[in-house]
């Protein structure tokens, strides 16, 4: 059985999430069983192959990922239509471990993608979620309606923050953490988004002694833990991550939000 080879799938549906963000939904039994936080290597024939977080899984064999149009590969994905062919291999990597209890989720932008299926499981577990969604400005938000629908199933809340104050509370997503952590007990914090935000989440969580799980991103080539392109400290984001627990995050805090490696393996400032 050969598993690390792209399986060709047809895009069934393309959903606009914002002006620059779209979700692509396809049929693939294996991906539909992905755990929240896992990713797939998506092959766009003739263009590139890039890692994408699974943002949606359905019991009927459907799965989806969500892409923001930034570079060549993501723009090619963004421009795909129903009927386009893609290759997928995976899902790969360590996933979030949903708990039962009071949790906090801090996300921003397309970093929310893996946090959506996570929230679905958390609310099925009857966990209460304090979800903080941050952004620079009102135009950037994705998944807010979907999050509201998921969170309506339990005693949960959504807090929106924007840097310019155009939506929700003015400030950073991490500014909204402290009041909640001071008010009541939080069992676990889940986060995904810009690395500086993740670093701040980790620092605040340390102050309140709350364990966290964060999903990280690096340039990936193989996706299966052998090429080393995605290394951060002594870890491989593709195999030891992309979801990391507090102890490992504390170990790599010297790199977190500071530098990453380019395609040549050279360390560059983030």
């Amino acid at each position: 059985m050969v598993s690390d080879k792209p399986r060709i799938v047809k895009v069934l549906n393309v959903r606009d999430e914002s002006k620059t963000v779209r979700s692509l939904i396809f049929e693939d039994d294996i991906c539909s069983k992905a755990r929240p936080g896992q990713f797939v290597m998506v092959w766009i024939p003739g263009v590139d192959e890039i890692p994408m977080s699974i943002s949606m899984t359905k019991a009927n064999g459907l799965a989806g990922f969500t892409v923001r149009k930034v570079g060549e590969a993501s723009s090619a994905l963004f421009d795909m239509e129903a009927g386009s062919l893609l290759g997928v291999r995976g899902p790969y990597g360590r996933h979030f471990t949903p708990i039962i209890g009071d949790v906090m989720i801090v996300g921003a932008g397309t970093g929310l993608a893996p946090l959506m299926p996570l929230s679905e499981i958390l609310t099925q577990n009857l966990s209460s979620i304090h979800m903080i969604i941050g952004g620079k400005t009102i135009d950037e938000f994705v998944f807010v309606d979907r999050a509201r629908a998921i969170l309506s199933k339990t005693k949960s809340e959504i807090i929106i923050t924007t840097e310019d104050g155009s939506y929700g509370t003015k400030g950073l997503a991490t500014d909204a953490m402290e009041p909640i952590l001071k008010e009541g007990h939080i069992d676990k914090i889940y986060t995904c988004g810009p690395e500086l935000m993740i670093k701040k989440v980790l620092e605040i969580a340390q102050v309140f002694s709350v364990p966290i799980q964060a999903s990280l991103e690096r340039i990936m080539k193989c996706g299966i833990g052998i090429c080393g392109s995605c290394c951060i400290g002594r870890y491989r984001v593709c195999k030891d991550g992309p979801v990391f627990d507090s102890p490992k995050l504390e170990e790599i805090i010297g790199e977190l939000g500071l530098f990453k490696r380019d395609h040549s393996g050279r360390a560059t400032i983030i």
Binding site: V2, S3, P6, E49, S229
Partner: peptide, 22 residues
């Protein structure tokens, strides 16, 4: 560019292209 690796029956095929920082 990727794909730089693909599994085949009994092994893997790669063309990373000697990427290195110099």
């Amino acid at each position: 560019d990727n794909p730089t690796i693909v599994e085949v029956y009994g092994g893997y095929l790669n063309a990373i292209g000697l990427s290195n920082p110099g």
